[in-house]
Design a protein around this nucleic acid. Sequence first.
DNA 1: ATGGTCGGCAACCGA
Length: 256
Amino acid sequence: MRVATFNVNGVRARIPVITRFLRQHEPDVLCLQETKVVDEDFPVEPFEKLGYECAICGQKSYNGVAIISRVPMKQVTTGLDDEPFDHTRLIRARVGGIHLINTYVPQGRDVETEHFRYKLDWLGRLRGFIERNYTTRQRMLWVGDINVAPEPRDVHDPKGMMNHPDFHPDARAALADVVAWGLTDVFRKHNDEDGQYSFYDYRNPRSVKHNSGWRVDLMHATRALANRCTAARIDIKPRTWKRPSDHTPVIAEFDL
DNA sequence: ATGGTCGGCAACCGA
């Protein structure tokens, strides 16, 4: 089974990029973040034409998550299990024999603001959610735009980024606490090198050229599932296509 | 250089 995650920054603006990606890689499941559209206006047709069904939870202008799958999905639910639920930041399903969670973790804006506190709390609540709903013996996969780069090798300028909400030690500790429940970063299972990034800020016109990126789009599996992960990679090609997202897809293969 | 460019949506907000 092949699973991908992609922060598309507006699903309607990105249909040509997403469908080209689907045709090229034929993932069984594609998790989207920042769809930025209410469910009634979600463009399901281009996905259904390619043989995929859509589980969606969006809102106007901001946030929004979706699971696009060509294998049947069941038990689709949205949101955390305590308030604020943030339904448009978490969607999960049982698909292809795995328990899949797709999240768009709050970005945090600035470490001095309440938004950063909210992000840290959100990751703490996610750990509780995972503890209550899963066991480490299950084949569970947590993917999405996590908005945290786990290690210094996951950002281009670790010292300069220390006060950034995606690399601040408190953010990394909050992520590490979720991971410590019993998860493996499947990209890191198969890739040791630094300079492998999934995000390049639109606002820095030279970020791609200078490889000034971040690895914040992550896939974490329970050991029961990570043991069966045979490959994981960041697909840089969509970055070179017309109207790219500032994020790039991450793909993992599982022998199930 | 506390800038820059996007998407959504119709003035700015969020990233």
